[in-house]
Amino acid sequence: MMRLLIIAFSLLITFDVNASETDISLLSNYGFYASWKSEQSTETFDVSHQNSFALKNVWRSAGEYAWEIYFSEQQVKLKQLEFKTINNLAHFELKSLQLGALKENPFSWGSEYYGAGVGVTRFTARADELNPSENISLSFFGGLQMKITQHFLLSFEGRMQLHLLDSMTSVNCSPECDIDIKSQTWSSLQIGAGLTYRF
Rank of each mutant, 00 (worst) to 15 (best):
48 S>E: 13
35 S>H: 08
194 G>P: 02
80 Q>V: 02
60 R>V: 00
96 S>Y: 03
188 S>H: 07
25 S>Y: 03
68 E>P: 00
59 W>F: 10
158 G>L: 04
52 S>W: 00
66 A>M: 01
106 P>T: 08
163 H>T: 15
125 A>Y: 02
62 A>T: 08
108 S>M: 08
15 F>T: 11
85 T>A: 12
123 F>I: 08
11 L>H: 08
32 F>N: 10
141 F>D: 00
80 Q>M: 01
26 L>M: 13
2 M>W: 10
148 I>E: 09
78 L>W: 00
188 S>Y: 03
150 Q>F: 07
46 D>W: 05
57 N>K: 08
117 G>D: 05
178 D>Q: 12
176 E>Q: 14
64 E>N: 11
198 R>Y: 04
47 V>S: 06
138 L>E: 04
191 I>H: 05
139 S>I: 03
18 N>C: 07
54 A>P: 00
180 D>C: 10
34 A>M: 07
31 G>Q: 06
128 D>E: 13
163 H>I: 14
59 W>S: 00
33 Y>E: 04
88 N>P: 00
97 L>R: 02
5 L>P: 07
142 G>F: 08
90 A>D: 03
155 S>D: 15
88 N>R: 12
69 I>A: 03
135 N>S: 10
168 M>D: 10
128 D>V: 05
85 T>D: 12
105 N>C: 06
100 G>V: 01
111 S>G: 05
76 V>G: 01
174 S>H: 10
195 L>V: 13
49 H>K: 10
9 F>H: 08
105 N>G: 04
167 S>M: 05
40 Q>G: 15
148 I>S: 09
199 F>V: 01
79 K>F: 02
21 E>P: 05
192 G>K: 02
138 L>D: 03
92 F>Q: 09
159 R>W: 01
192 G>S: 12
154 L>P: 04
56 K>N: 14
70 Y>Q: 00
13 I>W: 08
15 F>A: 11
90 A>P: 01
84 K>W: 12
10 S>N: 12
28 S>K: 13
183 S>L: 09
8 A>H: 10
124 T>D: 12
149 T>A: 11
176 E>P: 06
145 Q>G: 02
132 P>G: 10
165 L>Q: 03
9 F>I: 09
61 S>C: 00
16 D>T: 15
127 A>D: 13
103 K>R: 15
150 Q>T: 09
35 S>W: 06
183 S>D: 15
149 T>D: 15
54 A>N: 01
42 T>A: 11
180 D>H: 06
26 L>W: 14
194 G>M: 02
122 R>F: 02
104 E>V: 07
144 L>N: 08
10 S>Q: 11
